[in-house]
Design a binder for these strands. Structure first.
Lengths: 225, 225
DNA sequence: CGACGCGTTGATATGGCTCAAGAGTGGTGG
DNA sequence: CCACCACTCTTGAGCCATATCAACGCGTCG
């Protein structure tokens, strides 16, 4: 049903260590389309994204897909539960990661400061997911897309004169599966925002936010523009 | 819009300490309808539910509500992010709690075993929320309700001869706001499951699962009954 | 050049929402 | 003990937002 087919599992063998000769290997690179881990894999590592973008997904047997999150630089992915990963994770572009032992999070042995950082990342993750709930459960398609664009712009947007600009490394299908919509609805909603002069679209994957305040109002559900 | 109005804030003053004379107060009781904390409150405590049921909610300005989770015995609520709570929390019935200092989770000073337990609870929470995402974003109303009933039955159901039985301490509106539906749709879906002889309903708030396997299939999206 | 993947747009279908009415259910006070 | 009231739940009718099905354009790659 969903265009983006579950890819055949190509995993760790595809990960290219950046500094192959150091004993305590921690930094690595992953190529677009390659999986960092799959749902059900033993979760021995937790990863901090240094550059690039990751995609965390869950897939039902019949192919329905939910994008749980996109992992941007500064994000931490791969939190274990019962020692396993509970999502698939792959890269949307060449992505560099710093890997940490699961023990660093779970027992705190060794690097206390790192343990703290990973723990805080887990707590932020819980908070971010709560936002996402409201979006999935209670917002209209235009509110969903506006929320998504605002969140991404706040996080990784660029100032462009009077406007904001944000690059979208993911496909419309990814956005749809993140927001609980179809690609068609996402596309129509982009068009609607574009025709309302709230955004402009440059080469499909770059969005210019012409009216950030208006977009934020839409995201919050202020229907009186 | 939603029937259950945001209640006036009645908070900690309503919490009844069970053992008022002990210095290191940790166990407490909260009455139905009373708030344990509100979104934006400083998050100085993390709570383990010992008995009863809590409700974690988020509310938009226009009244749209999302139930983030129900807190059953064994669950931990109140994970802080930036030192604040990010949901409201109130009780659906008389509920007893064990309170822990935020520091116990964050710094791990003192009780290492407890620190471990709270950390694991946070990781389980992340995993549980990922399930919830799939439900909110990609499931039909009947799949949502079936998932909800199965999860609750697995967690707190009773064996009743050949059947399973589960009590629902929350209203239809709560279930609707948890599943991203309306009360009418929840009610109609209950009726549909009842007419299909998959469940029976006893006094509104007790559900008997007549065909657990069928219900589980529906929850997973196996449409071929 | 042809094939494919992705995005857009159009036409139509439909699942869940909205609005409305009525049927339990429980609590309260006379 | 009953009458009343407030609240929740259920059911019906109609509608609307989004899904579905389909066609096509565009860019990329072999």
């Amino acid at each position: 049903m969903y265009v983006t087919a579950p890819l055949p599992a190509t995993r760790t063998q595809e990960i290219v260590p950046s500094k192959p000769n150091i004993t305590h290997q921690r930094t690595m690179t992953i190529k677009p389309g390659k999986h960092l881990f799959l749902e059900g894999d033993p979760a021995d590592r937790i990863y901090e994204v240094a550059s690039g973008v990751l995609r965390l997904t869950r897939i039902m047997e019949d192919g329905r897909r939910q994008v749980i999150a996109f992992g941007y630089p500064g994000d931490t992915v791969g939190f274990p539960s019962d020692g396993l990963y509970h999502t698939d994770c792959d890269a949307l572009m060449p992505t560099t990661l710093v890997a940490h032992r699961r023990k660093t999070l779970e027992s705190g042995e060794g690097d206390t400061a790192l343990h703290q950082r990973l723990l805080q990342a887990a707590l932020r993750e819980i908070s971010a997911m709560q936002d996402h709930f409201m979006m999935l459960g209670r917002k209209s398609s235009i509110e969903k897309l506006a929320s998504f664009l605002m969140a991404l712009t706040d996080r990784v947007g660029d100032r462009l004169g009077d406007f904001d600009q944000v690059k979208l490394p993911m496909t419309r299908a990814d956005i749809a599966d993140f927001l609980g919509l179809t690609t068609e609805t996402v596309s129509r909603t982009f068009t609607q925002l574009r025709k309302s002069q709230i955004i402009a679209i440059d080469h499909i994957n770059t969005v210019i936010i012409l009216k950030p305040l208006t977009l934020r109002c839409i995201a919050e559900g202020d229907d009186n523009i």
